[in-house]
């Protein structure tokens, strides 16, 4: 009850909405950059054995690099800036996207690729009509897990080095031991995340896999 009251209080005093929007926009920017780079590199690694051999070690390193180390280094090198935060989130997320998309690229049917070649489709048509649709399930999977990961580390990195956003607010409440406000922020934030999952991710997924029985 106290938590619900607290949510309303924070909502109307303004800083809750502001914080969530700040966090959301950071997550969104990091998400789209990570997906774009991850899909491109993942597709290249999945289709080329040479590239895959060369980058495999780096990928394992990237996948296992502690998020905190990346964040601290970014903040030290680039200052406590927006750029450093986005960069740190992307460095954490991109290896995951690459690993998922690489699996998808390896599973692409060579028989369907041949159809595109026999009928002399342009490379752009082959990419858009034959390669990407086969990657959709993997792209959806990468987006899902990507979003989940990004929320967590954006909050953490905000707490570490930014003066706005949900993470920063949580740190303030932590210092005052204001448990009610912490829970209020947590619930409000969870509600936003669930809304995005239900109204964006799921419909997109349904549309992309409509052809399946």
């Amino acid at each position: 009850m106290a938590v619900a009251e607290s949510i309303f209080e924070h909502l109307f005093e303004g800083e809750l909405v502001e914080s969530i929007l700040a966090t959301l926009s950071r997550a969104a920017v990091a998400f789209f950059i990570s997906m774009a780079i991850g899909i491109t590199v993942g597709l290249a690694l999945g289709r080329s054995k040479g590239l895959d051999r060369f980058f495999d070690g780096w990928l394992v390193l990237g996948l296992n690099m502690p998020a905190l180390v990346v964040a601290i280094l970014c903040y030290i090198w680039f200052g406590l800036t927006e750029f450093a935060l986005i960069l740190a989130v992307c460095i954490n997320k991109i290896p995951n996207v690459i690993a998922t998309i690489r699996e998808g690229a390896r599973a692409i049917e060579p028989e369907l690729i041949e159809v595109g070649r026999v009928y002399r489709l342009s490379w752009l048509q082959q990419l858009r009509q034959i390669y990407l649709p086969q990657l959709y399930p993997y792209i959806v999977a990468a987006s899902r897990s990507g979003l989940a990961l990004i929320w967590k580390i954006v909050l953490l990195f905000e707490l570490l080095g930014r003066s706005s956003g949900v993470g920063f607010q949580l740190q303030v409440f932590f210092q005052f031991f204001d448990i009610t406000s912490i829970l209020a922020y947590a619930f409000a934030f969870i509600a936003v995340v669930l809304t995005i999952e239900g109204f964006v991710m799921r419909p997109v997924e349904r549309r992309l896999t409509a052809w399946r029985l």
Partner: peptide, 10 residues
Amino acid sequence: FQSDRLMPWM
């Protein structure tokens, strides 16, 4: 082809 090789998502 020997099999139909249609794009299942189309």
